[in-house]
Design a protein around this nucleic acid. Structure first.
Length: 271
DNA sequence: AGAAAATCCTGGTGGC
DNA sequence: TGCCACCAGGATTTTC
């Protein structure tokens, strides 16, 4: 499930290799979450300048125009000068002078959207209300705490919502809350200065460690050069229901919060 | 208005 | 074996 670390690992795995490439062809498969927003042919002849990221969106910037790429929950990219024959789950492909960039996405919750600029209304609609970037300097403790003070729902769900801080999905929300020793059920507005600062730090630690480990490969995630991640092997709580807590030995529990599974240690995260 | 909760999309999987 | 409920991320819709 691509969350911020998987998207960032993907970005790093092909950004350098694709920069300067000129588009020579586009292949579109089945429809994704949203329409591409242009005829694929109009991309031919454009040159890739940079590959950026905002939240879980990759921003493939051309000398003119930008492709917003979202991996949804089952998407992965591959960039290679020798891609295998396209399969049934390959739904977008950019052929360039430096190799082919292909999106494979069985569930098709992902998206590739063309906008003429990052200031385009459609881009603003998708990116405009996103929260702070957790790994950048703009992830300010004060702003984070102030934001939490305004939310009455459970802290786990506030993290997932992405309006305050982006990129923290189901895996890393559980992990960060464990690291910060905060119950996923705690109301966001009840967290004081100390727990709030601890959570802020925990989010940064968990996400940056996950990036270092190449992300989490639960089923089939791999970066654009085919590498799998292995953060999942060091998860403290995610997917560990019924197993002993790595810190205190208490049995890890799971529950449902807003139709999503949450994992936590009832002792370490009792407050 | 703005926050919170419910809904929807798809295909792989596990249980029976 | 086949069928079906269930699960997942997050934008969108509905409710409060």
């Amino acid at each position: 499930m691509p969350e911020l670390p998987e998207v960032e690992v993907t970005r790093r795995s092909f950004a350098r290799a694709i920069e300067g490439a000129r588009v020579v062809g586009v292949r579109v498969g089945k429809p994704l979450r949203w329409p591409l927003g242009c005829d694929g042919a109009v991309l031919v002849g454009r040159t890739v300048t940079t590959v950026g990221r905002r939240g879980k969106y990759l921003l493939l910037e051309f000398d003119s125009g930008v492709l917003l790429i979202h991996l949804g929950m089952s998407g992965s990219l591959r960039f290679s000068d020798n891609l295998p024959l396209a399969g049934v789950h390959d739904h977008f492909e950019l052929q360039t002078t430096q190799g082919g960039l292909r999106l494979t996405d069985p569930r098709r919750f992902g998206a590739v959207v063309y906008v003429s600029a990052i200031t385009d209304p459609l881009a603003l609609k998708l990116l405009g209300k996103l929260g702070m970037e957790p790994l950048s300097d703009d992830f300010d403790v004060g702003q984070f705490c102030a934001g939490l003070k305004q939310r009455k729902s459970a802290i786990k769900q506030v993290l997932l919502a992405g309006q305050l801080v982006v990129g923290v999905g189901n895996i890393y929300a559980s992990e960060a809350l464990f690291l910060a020793k905060i119950s996923p059920l705690a109301r966001a507005d009840t967290l004081g200065r100390v727990r709030c600062a601890r959570l802020h730090a925990a989010i940064r630690v968990v996400l940056s460690q996950a990036v270092e480990r190449g992300g989490s490969t639960l089923r089939d995630f791999s970066s654009a050069d085919g590498q799998t991640g292995h953060f999942q092997t060091q998860a403290m709580v995610y997917g560990r229901a019924g197993l002993p807590c790595r810190a205190c030995g208490t049995m890890i529990e799971s529950m449902r919060q807003g139709q999503r599974s949450t994992f936590f240690c009832p002792l370490c995260q009792s407050a």
